[in-house]
Amino acid sequence: MQLSDRITGTFIAALGAVAAYAGSLLPPVPGQQVGPNVFPLVVGIGLVICGALIALGIGHTFEEEAEAAVADLAPPESPAARHPLYGLRALLPPALLFFYYFAVESLGFIATAAIVALALSRALGAGWRIAVPLALIAPPLLHLAFFKLLRVPLPAGLLPMPW
């Protein structure tokens, strides 16, 4: 998700403006001039300035040097990477975490974690011979470590564990 500096800079400036405005609306501590309103105001103004500078391309020269230093260490791109939607694959891990958030209470930890592990390892190019054993072994191991040893109340759901 490579965006131009103009877009990210404008976004940061807008965010700063909103934060500064919303912060200025907060009431001060009774009897004092300052309160919870000052800090968001200062940070917001700072963000507006930085965002404007970034959008105008100031400070870009520093970045080129840093990039040149590490560029030759980067691995070569695969041919599939040229597909325009290839970058969207990166959204899979957060999507799986969202799935975990919504499903874990009803499905239970073991089932949800197995689905997450299977989906991600398949997406990373694992064959079924790696992905299926991983999905079967990793969740019970984690459950044992966190539920039994560290006493984290992971939801049991459909598949309660014997321990």
Partner: peptide
């Protein structure tokens, strides 16, 4: 294989942040 490590990491993130 990375395809086995990364899922384990993601699960650790989920369980750890819950814990």
């Amino acid at each position: 294989p990375r395809s086995a490590i990364m899922p384990a990491i993601l699960l650790c993130c989920a369980v750890g942040s819950f814990a």
